[in-house]
Design a binder for these strands. Structure first.
Lengths: 294, 294
DNA sequence: TCCTTCGATAAGAGATACTGATGCGCTGTG
DNA sequence: CACAGCGCATCAGTATCTCTTATCGAAGGA
């Protein structure tokens, strides 16, 4: 179960080929074959069926663990390295698109210690932060008010909420519901939605509404929020977005908010200071640092 | 960063000695010295100060990651092995003491497929389950109604809530508050409490009350809930316990409940079935399986 | 000061983990 | 049905790694 064996295993499954994995990893096919054999011998279990190459049920389980395990590995390494490098002079910030609310953007530009800002998809932020690509991570998501976001576990970076905001349903002006004062998500399950992961993924809608439905009328794969707003306004489907991004009808039920959280290494004082500074005064002190506890 | 190096590192820090760690792990002192040297060379960072042996700041960070990382390692291995072993004939269940509510205990005894039940401290359940010591884990804890418990991350075992119950403050009959209909936790911050991790740890009280205080009058280190009840009734300090365990005054604020969750491997159908069966009818369907999501 | 303790280092034996060559079963093709 | 091509397994050989034993040297206590 050494990390390099896991990495090889993952690659083999992904490429569905020992030889292709070998090439990708810079080994010979023989080495890959032996590595898999070692892994299987170590666990005493067949992990792969050959020809065609597919994971066995046990292999599927291992596959599911391997990703997070390797991610955590990288996170640990990055964290140690950050601690050893000492406080960063200038900070690199990585954020999901919607995490850069106007106020946060202002906070970032006002702060001379920020060197670079990079945005990536919401699911990638924690991962990229963990890999050491940035000193501060900003992720957005949907949660009950003052509840922490559910993020892939990546060790114990300090984590604080920096902003919470109302959500609105964006719909075209002529839409029958456009004049409402508020909307309940469950009532919109039968409507046609925009699939746009940069806003709120459709599966997440089902999850927070607790019902199925939410058929997709149109899919948008980019990262540009503006485009999503325009598509929604043009009637390609509904979109759920934070109020500061677009005009729309407030979401009144369930009681969820758009929340932005900052991730930073416990050893980076500058990042901690910046995170604290980004924390918006209007939002009453959101819950503090997180840690695994019973 | 191979697992065995991490294990050695952790042991060295823990024992504060290379030689002692070597003995504990069955290596020579020389081997341990070399392993630490390899780890430090790999990361390019000094992890330990020698004489006396103490972690550097970078070492502290690594130490914090190493535990969860190794735990996850074991969890992955155990999960793969469980998957390979096929559905268990008879199940081993591991539970924290308070997780065995009367109804759950009944469910377990009614179920002939259960072979063994073992209880361990609340913090150990997830860990022991992850290590493959049991097919089903039952953990209790305090949470907002229908919120999942916060458990150490251990991969993606399926997780369902099986019971939720009101909490009561146990106090002696002659206590001035004993006749109240309900109590707010924050109002009890100045009272003297029983430190008994088998009930609710004092730190957790501070956490959910959101205030300090909760001074400890008396400490109990065992695992026996009955003793805690007796101690509380005898006036050694207050205790917060699920209503089914002891008579007491219901906790009315904050709105938290005693919750029991079942952990089981995704590949163990028997365990899943048992978990579903333990699920108590009175509690309206608590939120389902968990997984890391954005 | 001397002795003990404890970690670092050197040297060598054994285990491990690669490469390159070859074997062998499957699959597709004529 | 035979055969070629593909792809994983296996074998042999070598380089590397990871231990052990032996020894050194610095720090701390008597």
């Amino acid at each position: 179960m050494e990390p390099h064996l896991l990495r090889t295993f993952v690659t083999v499954v992904h490429r569905r080929s020992f030889s292709a994995a070998a090439e990708e990893l810079g080994y010979t096919q023989s080495a890959v074959s032996q590595q898999i054999a070692v892994l299987e011998a170590d666990l005493g279990v067949a992990l792969l069926r050959r020809r065609p190459v597919r994971p066995t049920p046990a292999g599927e389980r291992l596959l599911e663990h391997a990703g997070p395990l390797l991610l955590r590995h990288r996170a640990a390494r990055a964290d140690v390295l950050r601690a050893a490098a000492g406080p960063a002079e200038r900070l690199t910030v990585i954020a999901s698109p919607l995490a850069c609310t106007p106020a946060i953007a202002r906070g970032l530009t006002a702060n001379r210690s920020v060197a670079t800002l990079r945005t990536v998809g919401r699911e990638r932020v924690a991962e990229r932060f963990a890999s050491g690509a940035a000193d501060l991570g900003l992720v957005d998501g949907i949660a009950a008010p003052s509840d922490p976001l559910r993020l892939p576990d990546v060790g114990t970076p300090a984590r604080i909420g920096v902003a919470e905001e109302e959500l609105v349903v964006v719909l075209p002006d002529r839409h029958p519901l456009a004049r409402r004062r508020g909307l309940a998500l469950a009532d919109l399950a039968d409507a046609l939605w925009l699939r746009a992961d940069v806003a709120v993924p459709v599966e997440r809608l089902r999850e927070i509404a607790g019902v199925g439905g939410f058929r997709v009328a149109f899919g948008y794969d980019g990262e540009d929020v503006h485009t999503v707003v325009n598509l929604a306004a043009a009637g390609h489907g509904l979109a759920l977005l934070p109020a500061s991004v677009a005009a729309g009808v407030p979401l009144t039920a369930p009681r969820v908010v758009h929340r932005v959280e900052a991730l930073y290494g416990p050893s980076s004082d500058r990042a901690a200071a910046l995170a604290a500074q980004l924390r918006q005064p209007p939002s009453s002190t959101p819950p503090g640092t997180s840690a695994a506890g019973s």
